[in-house]
Simulated scan of single mutants.
Amino acid sequence: MLYELIGIVRPGNLAEVKEIVSTTGALILRERGVIRGLSNWGVFSLPSSTSKHQMRHSTGHYFAMRYDASVETQKSVSSVLRNDPRMIRHTSVKLGDGKLDTMSRIAAIGWQRLGMGDEKRV
């Protein structure tokens, strides 16, 4: 199955984001999954202030990862991210069933920088 993971990490330390992404990627690869793409979107304001792990957050470091994996692997990824205190939010969306005709219709995410931290989906 093809999944897209969008994660929001507490801002301030890029090394934390890299560590979370590498841990998640290693888990996917260990379970015989394939990582199709990785995007670092940077730090943006959250839509609303959020409390997570007894901390209040108004900004977060966003990243996106596309990967092919089994349902069990996706559940493991979700569990690992849910228990990590550095994560503010994450979500995984199933994009396809792994068949070539389905995957050929799914394009890369395009983002256009507008300035001042605002972004618009293209």
Rank of each mutant, 00 (worst) to 15 (best):
E4W: 00
I6G: 06
I8G: 00
V9H: 02
V9P: 02
R10Q: 07
P11C: 03
G12L: 02
N13R: 15
N13S: 08
N13L: 08
L14V: 15
A15E: 14
I20S: 01
I20K: 00
V21A: 02
S22M: 12
T24L: 11
G25P: 09
G25S: 09
L27C: 07
I28F: 05
R30C: 11
R30Y: 11
R30W: 13
R30H: 08
E31W: 03
E31A: 08
E31I: 05
E31G: 07
G33V: 03
G33L: 00
R36S: 05
G42P: 04
G42L: 01
V43K: 05
S45P: 10
S45M: 12
L46A: 08
L46G: 00
P47S: 06
P47H: 04
S49M: 14
S49W: 12
T50P: 02
T50I: 10
S51Q: 11
K52H: 09
H53N: 12
H53E: 14
H53W: 13
Q54W: 13
Q54D: 13
R56P: 07
T59A: 15
T59S: 14
G60S: 02
H61E: 10
F63N: 02
A64V: 05
M65P: 01
M65Y: 00
A69C: 06
S70R: 01
V71N: 07
E72D: 08
E72W: 04
Q74E: 12
K75F: 10
S78K: 08
D84C: 03
D84Q: 05
D84T: 08
P85F: 06
M87H: 03
R89N: 05
S92G: 03
S92D: 09
V93G: 01
G96V: 03
G96S: 04
D97A: 09
K99M: 10
T102I: 07
T102E: 11
S104Q: 15
I106K: 01
G110Q: 13
G110W: 07
G110D: 03
Q112H: 14
G115L: 05
G115D: 13
M116Y: 14
G117L: 02
G117D: 07
E119A: 13
R121V: 07
